[in-house]
Design a protein around this nucleic acid. Structure first.
Length: 425
RNA sequence: GGAGAGGUGGCCGAGCGGUUGAAGGCGCACGCUUGGAAAGCGUGUGUAGGUUUACCCCUACCGAGGGUUCGAAUCCCUCCCUCUCCGCCA
C-alpha cells in the first residue's frame, strides 16, 4: 500500500511511477479530494470532542457540588449529534480511501527497464552450460512416467487436471530436493527455518497483497474464512504482522518449505502438460525483513542465495531483471531465475526474487524501532523462491537424462537418497 | 463439541462510572553518586491520526465491534483469542 501522505506530497512522482505500469489511471485526484474532505471532517470532529470532554468534566464537578447540571448535559447531548454525523462521514471516507489504496500497485523501482511484457526483461547474467544431450531429449513427462516417478493420470482421477502424484523414487527425489534446499539455506546462508500453517486468514492475504484484488487466484474454504496459501510468502511475511521489531534484529531471514496452492484462473491452455504449472506444488521460500537502507543489498544477496541451489546441482540458468510490465502487483523490483529446459529448448522461471520496499510492511503494519529513538518506521520486505521444487524436479530429469532413458542423480543430493546414483527402472 | 477462568503499557500488576493514557513494581535509557561496579537517588520511557518549520497542542486507543450515559478501562450485548477440566481425535 502506498502512503496517502506520500501521494499527497508527491503526486507527480506517483503518477509517473504508476504510468510506467500497464493500465493504470487510479483516479488519484479524486482520491486526494476525498482525503482532504476526510481531514477536514476529522478536524471539526476533534474540536467538538475536545469541547465535549471539557463540558462533561464540568458536569461532574457541578454534580459533586450538588448543583443542577441539566443545562450542560443538554448541551453535550446536542454536541453528540454533530459529532456522530461528522464521524460517520469521516469513517465512510476512510473506508473508501483505504479500499482504493489497497487496489493501487507498488511503485516500480526507478532503475528497472520499461516494457510491456517479458520480452523486455533484462538479461543480467548466466551460469553454467547447457548439457550435451542426444538430438531428441525426452521431456520430463516422458522421462517421469517411463521411470515410474510420476503418475499424472491417476492424479487427474483423484483431483483433476494440474495435479500430480509423485511415486517411488520420484517421491523420494522431491522430498530430497526440499530437504537439500532447506539445509543449504539454514546451514550455509543463515536463514531460520519456519514451518507455517498452510491455511491463512484474510488479514494475512491483505497484508501481502493477494487480497482484495486477486481473490480468483486463491482456493478458499467453504465454511471458514480461510484460504490455502499460494506461497509461503504469505504466512511467513505475516509472521511479524502488526509488530514493531528492534532495529538490531534486522535483517531477519526466514526460509520455509510449504506446498503452494493456486487456482491458475486465466491460464487455460498454458503449460497444460506436465509439472510446470500445477494447482499444488512445493516450494522452499526465502523471506527477509530489512531496513529500508539495506533492502537493495539484501535483494542481491537473496538472489545469490537462491542461485546457490542451482549451482550446487550444476544446472544451467540465467538471471533476468523484470521490466515494469512483468512486475508483480506488490513488487518494486524483481529478479527471476530461469533454468534451462532442454525439451522446451528454452529457459523457464524457477525462482522469483522481489523487493517490496515498504509496500507490504505498510499493509501488514510491520515496523521497526530506531535505535536513535523517534517514530517506528516501516521495514522493507523481500522474498524469493529458493526454489520451486516441482520445477527443479523437472529441470533435473531433463538435464540429467541419459541416452538410455535413465536419469543421473546430481551428486549434491545423493546423500539425501541413500547414495543412489541413477534413477532407472 | 461441553463446562469454567481470563484478556490493561516492553513485562508483571492496580484500577469506586467522573479531571486516569492509566497507581505501583520490574525492565530499559540518560544523569548524579563511585577508583570501578553494585546499591542508592533523579529524570525519562506506548501507538496511530490531526496540526506545526519545530516545540507545543488536540483526538483516539486498556482483545475487537456495538450499546447505555452528560461522562466508560470500569455497566450491558456480540465476536475473537488464551488457559484449565471433560469429550473426540492424527
Amino acid at each position: 500500500m502506498l502512503d496517502i501522505k506520500f501521494i499527497r506530497e508527491n503526486l507527480q512522482v506517483v503518477k509517473a511511477g504508476l504510468d510506467r505500469r500497464n493500465g493504470g489511471d487510479h483516479e488519484l485526484d479524486a482520491l486526494l479530494e476525498q482525503e482532504d474532505k476526510r481531514r477536514q471532517g476529522l478536524q471539526e470532529s476533534e474540536q467538538l470532542k475536545n469541547k465535549k470532554k471539557k463540558l462533561s468534566a464540568e458536569v461532574g464537578k457541578q454534580k459533586q457540588q450538588g448543583q443542577d447540571a441539566s443545562q450542560l448535559m443538554e448541551e453535550v447531548k446536542n454536541l453528540n449529534t454533530s459529532i456522530k454525523e461528522l464521524d460517520d462521514t469521516v469513517e465512510g471516507l476512510e473506508k473508501i480511501i483505504h479500499e482504493k489504496l489497497l487496489g493501487i500497485p507498488n511503485l516500480p523501482d526507478d532503475n528497472i527497464p520499461d516494457g510491456r511484457d517479458e520480452s523486455s526483461n533484462k538479461f543480467i547474467r548466466e551460469w553454467g552450460t547447457k548439457p550435451s544431450l542426444s538430438n531428441q531429449p525426452l521431456n520430463h513427462v516422458e522421462l517421469g512416467e517411463k521411470l515410474g516417478l510420476i503418475d499424472l493420470k491417476r492424479a487427474a482421477k483423484i483431483s483433476g487436471a494440474r495435479f500430480a502424484v509423485y511415486r517411488g523414487a520420484g517421491a523420494a527425489l522431491l522430498r530430497a530436493l526440499i530437504n537439500f534446499m532447506i539445509d543449504v539455506q539454514t546451514q550455509e546462508n543463515g536463514y531460520e527455518e519456519l514451518y507455517p500453517p498452510f491455511l491463512v486468514n484474510e488479514e494475512s492475504l491483505l497484508g501481502t497483497g493477494q487480497l482484495p484484488k486477486f481473490k480468483e487466484d486463491l482456493f478458499a474454504m467453504e465454511d471458514d474464512p480461510l484460504y490455502l496459501i499460494p506461497t509461503a510468502e504469505v504466512p511467513v511475511t505475516n509472521f511479524h504482522r502488526e509488530e514493531i521489531l528492534e532495529e538490531e534484529s534486522l535483517p531477519i531471514c526466514y526460509t520455509a518449505y510449504t506446498p503452494c496452492f493456486r487456482r491458475e484462473a486465466g491460464s487455460y491452455g498454458k503449460d497444460t502438460q506436465g509439472l510446470i504449472r500445477q494447482h499444488q506444488f512445493d516450494k522452499v521460500e526465502l523471506v527477509k525483513f530489512s531496513k529500508a537502507s539495506e533492502s537493495e543489498k539484501e535483494l542481491e544477496k537473496l538472489v545469490q542465495d537462491a542461485e546457490t541451489i542451482l549451482k550446487k546441482l550444476n544446472l544451467h540458468y540465467r538471471v533476468m531483471e523484470l521490466c515494469v510490465g512483468d512486475l508483480g502487483f506488490s513488487a518494486s523490483k524483481t529478479y527471476d531465475l530461469e533454468v534451462w529446459l532442454p525439451s522446451q529448448n528454452t529457459y523457464r522461471e524457477i525462482s522469483s526474487c522481489s523487493n517490496f520496499r515498504d509496500y507490504q510492511a505498510r499493509r501488514a503494519k510491520i515496523r521497526c524501532k530506531k535505535r536513535t529513538g523517534g517514530k517506528p518506521e516501516f521495514v522493507n520486505t523481500l522474498n524469493g523462491s529458493g526454489l520451486a521444487a516441482g520445477r527443479l524436479f523437472v529441470a533435473i530429469l531433463e538435464n540429467y537424462q541419459n541416452d538410455d532413458g535413465t536419469v543421473t542423480v546430481p551428486e549434491a543430493i545423493r546423500p539425501y537418497l541413500q547414495g543412489r546414483e541413477v534413477l532407472s527402472l
